[in-house]
Design a protein around this nucleic acid. Structure first.
Lengths: 197, 197
DNA sequence: ATGGGCATGTAACGAGTTACATGATTTT
DNA sequence: AAAATCATGTAACTCGTTACATGCCCAT
């Protein structure tokens, strides 16, 4: 089930390219391991569902981007592991070299502030506080990641992104405090005012 | 084609709720106008495609969340306009009152830095510079939006979010400068090193 | 022996996209 | 006369999700 010779295989999806990227650090990884590695991208990229990782890695293998190998690890346990092929490495390099799409953000808390006139001050406050909690959780998780990465030169760039992320979350935290005051002390129309009475 | 009496209509999609939110400012809007209004959410929410706006607003009308009206505006031009119903307002209020999902970010530039070992310093630099240009463009567009909003109390919350967004983009701009130095001066393995030679 | 982590998938669905198709009105 | 904007949609597709199904291995 290698790459077909004549017809070029379908291009990987964005998630597929991300998996190729993870394999470019040189290790052979199983689908399960790929999922856990890709969770480290969650600070700036949506972490794919387990089932999608399996689907994608199959596609990548079918397209010749990765090579599948059956191994028995730790004695008796059988797993499939994947290794980046030269084709795969070339593909991910080419993809990354393209001009980047603009970042895409879906921010449910900002949406709630924007439509703040549809919420009570109390509801709005709770949403913003949930956001602050989340930012703090992300900050501590980034700390952990930084420790895991250590001083290894291989992950120098990863560490840079972790720094970047920390800055971002600290900014969000500060912004959330400001917004909380401004949004919850503002005048709110009485319930039901939007459609008239 | 109003809301069915017995069986409750399907819930709106996230984009559907956003459209309801836009209609909650009290104006009757056409599909085309809704698209342009929803573009103002692009700083913190993905702006839907035109075709999706039309599909969603139809669904919302079928579910009784909005009321459709045929009007002839500016003399001869016929358009359909939509108005929020009490049902629709209640639905969007209830949706916004739910605990918010965590923000979801897809940041192709951060991804490129993370996988920086697959790019030349020059390619990486270009990606980061494209990001800075984009941030600057967003900042000026936010300025424009702030002017459009004016001092109108109706859009007080929208103005707050615009402020928030400006802060975010200024942060990104600053971070990008730092990253550019750190990432492009780092040691890079020679091309092809990832899969061995 | 029970629960948690490792390991691999399938099926059904959902929400969004791009490309296409059409035509009126307004501005240059 | 051409181009931009207003205006409304359809069709096909892609990428992702959740829910489900299965089973091994290890620690308590």
């Amino acid at each position: 089930m290698a790459a077909p010779r004549g017809a070029s295989p379908p291009s990987p999806t964005p998630t597929g390219y991300a998996l190729l990227g993870l394999l470019s650090f040189g290790r052979e990884l199983s689908g399960y391991e790929l999922k856990r590695w890709s969770d480290n991208l969650r600070f700036f990229w949506s972490a794919p569902a387990m089932s999608q990782v399996y689907r994608e890695i199959e596609r990548l293998a079918a397209g010749g981007y990765v090579e599948q190998r059956h191994v028995v690890r730790d004695g008796t346990r059988a797993t499939k592991v994947y290794r980046l092929t030269p084709t795969g490495e070339q593909a991910v390099r080419a993809w990354l070299a393209e001009p980047p799409d603009p970042p895409m953000l879906k921010h449910p808390v900002a949406l709630r502030v924007f439509f703040g006139h549809l919420l009570t001050p109390d509801q709005l406050k709770r949403a913003i506080e949930a956001h602050r909690d989340w930012c703090e959780r992300m900050l501590t998780e980034l700390e952990v990641l930084r420790c895991d990465l250590g001083e290894d030169q291989t992950f120098h760039n990863a560490a840079l992104v972790a720094e970047w992320g920390s800055g971002y979350f600290r900014g969000e935290l500060a912004a959330a405090e400001g917004i909380e005051d401004a949004a919850t002390t503002a005048a709110h129309p009485p319930d039901g005012a939007a459609t008239g009475s």
